[in-house]
């Protein structure tokens, strides 16, 4: 815990953005460990994969494009400090009269949750209660969550895939991109070197295992921690590793951008489709009971399908975001070449 605070404090003060990013990753990872000690294994899994994994990759990708040194400053900002202290004070004020954490008779544990804990094994028949709440009781939230990822994928594509415009009019506004940079080249594609034997061999050995593990997480989420989201992230991580080691073009030839866009959409449609089918069969939206003659079997089938939908969308969206960032580097590199000529 104290490590956590130390980590965040140093994020605030460190000036090199690479170091700050790494510290953020470490904070996420410590957080994941704390989540395990708090019994939230699924969340810990996700936090480790997302916070310490994917988001670090994204930050580094960005820093490669924008430069990693923060401008010398930091002057002391009084206004924000006052606001922060005020927010903290309100939260501290709320501590009194608050139920003590960890006690079994808190309202959190006595009102809605017992139903999930006591009845979900019989109503849904899935041992992992997090999965049953996630995919069935609050399945609509998860549908929304899938949509959030879809929206992010769409948004990043919209923002980053734009061609450069007004080239002929005002070239002087386009500041050359490697100005103010600290010695790093702008392109990520250079990462895929042809000559590094060891990474190649290790990656070739690792990637199949990553995919197998992802599939295990995907379909085993009913019984242990895991599920579509975590599996999707792992799957995407496998392909990203592939892209980093063997260059982006190879990865693109495996999974093309067009296919990714199709897959992002397909995942959402699969999830929504399950809902629509259950409507047609006479239930409410996402009511899995009607999917099979036996309600529990129906729940099983429904959860399996929607988790698959989540997995597909997450994998594809993560890849789309990654491709967009790296593709941007290519675009910039191409432009820099043009300018040189």
């Amino acid at each position: 815990m104290l490590l956590l605070i130390a980590g965040t404090m140093s994020v605030l003060f460190v000036r090199n953005l690479f170091v700050a990013t790494m510290l953020l990753g470490i904070v996420s990872f410590i957080m994941a460990l704390i989540f395990i000690s708090l019994d939230a294994v699924d969340v810990a899994f996700t936090e480790a994969a997302v916070g310490a994994g994917i988001s670090t990759v994204l930050y580094i990708g960005t820093l490669a494009l924008v430069g990693s040194q923060e401008k010398d400053q930091p002057k002391f900002a009084a206004g924000p400090l006052v606001i922060c202290l005020a927010v903290g004070a309100v939260l501290y004020y709320a501590t009194y009269e608050m139920p003590r954490f960890g006690e079994a008779n808190n309202p959190v544990h006595t009102h809605v949750a017992p139903r999930y804990i006591n009845d979900s094994p019989t109503e849904i028949g899935v041992p992992n209660m997090v999965t049953s709440v996630l995919a069935s009781y609050r399945g609509y939230d998860t549908f929304g969550e899938t949509t959030v990822i879809f929206a992010a994928g769409i948004g990043v594509l919209l923002i980053l895939r734009q061609r450069r415009r007004r080239k002929n009019e005002d070239d002087e506004t386009d500041v050359p991109l490697d100005e103010g940079k600290t010695g790093r080249s702008g392109s990520l594609t250079g990462l895929g070197s042809q000559h590094d034997l060891i990474p190649h061999v290790i990656a070739k050995l690792l990637i199949p295992f990553i995919f197998v593990f992802a599939l295990y997480v995907q379909f085993h989420g009913d019984y242990g921690p895991g599920g579509g989201f975590q599996a999707g992230v792992i799957f995407a991580a496998g392909i990203i590793l592939y892209a980093l080691v063997f260059s982006l073009d190879y990865a693109r030839s495996v999974v093309s951008e067009r296919a990714i866009l199709f897959l992002i959409s397909a995942g959402v449609l699969l999830y929504g489709g399950v809902g629509v089918v259950s409507m047609m069969l006479g239930g409410n939206f996402l009511d899995y009971n009607v999917l099979a003659s036996d309600p529990v079997a129906g729940q099983h089938l429904g959860i399996l399908l929607v988790e698959l939908g989540v997995g597909i969308t997450v994998t594809a969206a993560m890849l789309a975001i990654f491709y967009a960032f790296v593709g941007r580097a290519d675009l910039i590199a191409a432009k820099a070449e043009q300018e040189e000529n």
């Binding site: 949509t147 959409s265 397909a266 959402v268 449609l269 929504g272 809902g275 629509v276 409410n284 939206f285």
Partner: peptide, 20 residues
């Protein structure tokens, strides 16, 4: 009887189709 959900998912499910 399904109107309340249709109002939200009609645009939602059209979005992925539209993206393609």
């Amino acid at each position: 009887s399904q109107f309340p959900i249709l109002v939200a998912i009609a645009p939602l499910l059209t979005a992925p189709i539209c993206a393609l």
